[in-house]
Amino acid sequence: MPLRWQILWTNAPGAPLHKADGFAIETQNLRKVYGKKVAVRNLSLSVRCGEIFGFLGPNGAGKSTSIKMLLGLVKPTDGQALVLGAPSGSVEIRRKIGFLPEDFRFYTWLTASELLKLHGKLCGLSALSLAERVPALLELLGLTPHREKRLREFSKGMLQRIGLAQALIHEPELIFLDEPTSGLDPMGRRLVRDVIRAQRERGATVFLNSHLLSEVEITCDQVAFIKQGEIVGTHDLRTESGGEIRVVVSAQKLPAETVAGLTRWCTSIRKEDDLLTFSTNSKEVLPEVHRYLAASGADIFSFTPERLSLEELFLKIMGEDRGL
C-alpha cells in the first residue's frame, strides 16, 4: 500500500474492522412495491465483511431501490435487512456507513473544503480530525488545487470525486458506491479503483453498483445479478474454478452423434463447420471430454478453454437487449 494511503486510513491494513466470517449486509425477502409496480421482488443476499461486492443488473432492475432500502432512505414493503448487524436505517449505524449517490449533487455555493467539513461535522468528527482528513482526502482525490473552488465550477468528474471524498470522510466500515466512475475519465476511474482497493485493505466492505462491467470485474470479489427486482445469480470472481467455462474446439470429421453425446457434460453446444463450441460448469471434466472427442476418430487441431467474461456472463443471465 502506498504511503499516502496508509497515512489517510488510521485503521492500518491487517487490522480488520470485522471478523472475517461476519456479514456486513444480510437481507431476507426484501420487497418494495410502489402502487402496482414491484420495484424489488424478493431480495435475499449476504455480503461478507471486508468484501468488495458488485451489484449488477440492467436499468430498472431495482438496484437503486435496493441500495436505498439498505441505507434506510426507502422503507421496505416487506422483508428484513441487517446492515452491520443492525436494522437498515438505524441512525447509530450510519456512523459506520459511507454513501456516494449516483450523480452526486450538493449545494453549489459550497467550496470543496466546506463540503467535506460539513459532511465531517454531520458524521460527528472533531475539528482536529477534520483539519487532518479534509486536506488528505482532497489530495488523495486530486482536488487540492480546487479546494477553494465552489461546486458550481466543478465538472461532473470533479463532482464525483468530491462525492467520493464525502463518503469516506469518517472512515466508514461499509461504503455504498452507486456508479462511482460515472463521468470520470480513465485516470479518474483508475483512481477510484485504487481507492476502493485501499478500502478493502483497511478492512472496509464496499457495495458497488456499476454499469461498467470491466471495472467491476477487476475490482470486485463477488457479484450478484439482479433482474426484475430479484437476485438471479451470484458469482465469485476470486475463485479460478468457479463459473462457466467455454471451450472452442477446431476439429474435422467429428461425427454428429459424438457432438450429441456431449450433453452429459455440457450446458450448451454449437457446431459451425469445423468449429465446435460448448460450455461446461467444471474444468474437471475437460480431460474426459477431450478423450471422448479424440476417441470418436475426429482430427482435433485445437482444444481451447476460455472463461466467460463478466460481460458475457451478464448477457447470458440477463438475456440480450431486444430493444433495437
Binding site: K68, L71, G72, L73, V91, E92, R94, R95, I97, F99, P101, E102, D103, F104, R105, F106, Y107, H119, L122, C123, G124, G163, Q166
Partner: peptide
C-alpha cells in the same frame, strides 16, 4: 428531486 438530500439523510443525523 435532485438527490441532494440523499447525501445528508444517510449521515448519522435523524
Amino acid at each position: 428531486a435532485s438527490g441532494t438530500i440523499h447525501a445528508i439523510a444517510t449521515k448519522p443525523v435523524s
